[in-house]
Amino acid sequence: MIPYGRQTISEADIQAVVEVLRSDFLTQGPAVPAFESAVANYCGAQYACAVNSATSALHIACLALGVGKGDSVWTSPITFVASANCVLYCGADVDFVDIDPRTYNISVECLAAKLAQAEKTGNLPKVVIPVHLSGQSCDMEAIHRLSQQYGFNIIEDASHAIGAQYRGQSVGNCRYSDITVFSFHPVKIITTGEGGMALTNDAGLARRMQLLRSHGITRETSEMTHDADGSWYYQQIALGFNYRLTDFQAALGLSQMQRLDEFVATRHALAKRYDDLLSHLPVAIPWQHSDSYSALHLYVIRLRLNAINKTHSELFELLRAEGVGVNLHYIPVYWQPYYQEMGFKIGYCPEAERYYGEAISLPIYPGLTETQQNQVVLALRKAVTV
């Protein structure tokens, strides 16, 4: 089976991990800050906080911005559930904004209309979480303008988008947001096995997230309520979590960072080849905004079902039967039973639901060969024409 995504591990990556395993520090050592510095420098952000998953990064980002009971946070319905769950962890309410029909990211027009209505009823969000689906940046300048008008904070869920650019600058520089979050799951652009990172240009937010990732404990005397009892002393000054990233995971990430641009360039070459090979099939290929250079974590096509004599599900299963591990990113979050119990109904975000009824993610990752890509296209051509 050709998977939709797969990690690319080199001998240099393996050696970097082995060196840490042979060192004195498997966790809370020098590899984590080195990895944080590498990502922050690459993106042009001032601070980075590595954690054990992007979900954890989203959680502490919300907490650092003071999200809590009585607050509302808005995000896209076309995302993994973590983008919304992080809000519920904080005791706040989550809501969804429909997507743009071309980028599949949060629609600025829908967001503006929803904000105008919310202002009238006194229900403006505390935070908006735009999701850079497939690695293509949302229209962050426009969202930032709305944040200044309506007074909300912004967390960029860039789990798909390390190595991407928006208007010629690296996603993650936080020019248009308070915090940006990356994921390092094995199917993402670079990997630490499991892992994530939150970037910010705000020293206070950075320190708050650093505390929250490690039990809320400090050894900094300036943060303590009284003088330390001795060199062993620490204080818990917040209710934190064990969200730390290990040093051997960080070593893998640091090694992978050296090939980040290469990985993204390879994905672009594969996407261009898909674009050409699929041009005569009844499918819509991914649309790329001129302001964005996508990391291309996903290559999502939409089936023109009115020109195909099969259902969405039938095509999906035919491709799987041919050894092509297609996937679907994503089911609208509010369709999940847990969210349905909150009162969300089918029809809430019509464009997201249309997308869900037609989308299929084709395999794309740096190790995908031309032979395998030809197999994917052949299987798709067979499925849509037979």
Rank of each mutant, 00 (worst) to 15 (best):
E351K: 09
V377R: 09
H59I: 14
Q336H: 14
A16G: 09
I308G: 08
S279Y: 03
E194K: 10
V187H: 09
S183C: 03
A352M: 02
V171G: 04
D139V: 01
A64E: 12
S72Y: 06
C110Y: 05
V97N: 05
G204V: 15
Y339E: 12
C349H: 03
A113F: 08
N123Q: 02
S134W: 00
T221Y: 02
S222N: 05
E223Y: 00
S134Q: 10
A251R: 07
L146D: 01
Y104M: 11
A164M: 05
T55I: 08
S294D: 09
H160V: 03
N327K: 13
S56W: 11
S83H: 13
Y104I: 13
T225P: 06
I285L: 03
I14M: 14
G163F: 01
G70N: 03
A295C: 06
R273E: 14
K272L: 05
A12I: 14
M342G: 04
I179T: 13
E19D: 12
N242T: 12
I360K: 10
E220L: 00
S56T: 14
S37A: 12
A112K: 13
A269K: 15
T221L: 03
R259Y: 00
H329E: 13
I364G: 08
R6M: 09
F248Q: 07
I237C: 05
A228I: 11
L252E: 03
L124N: 02
I237N: 00
R302F: 05
Q372F: 10
L260M: 04
A284N: 13
S10C: 09
E353Q: 03
N52C: 01
V17I: 14
A198H: 08
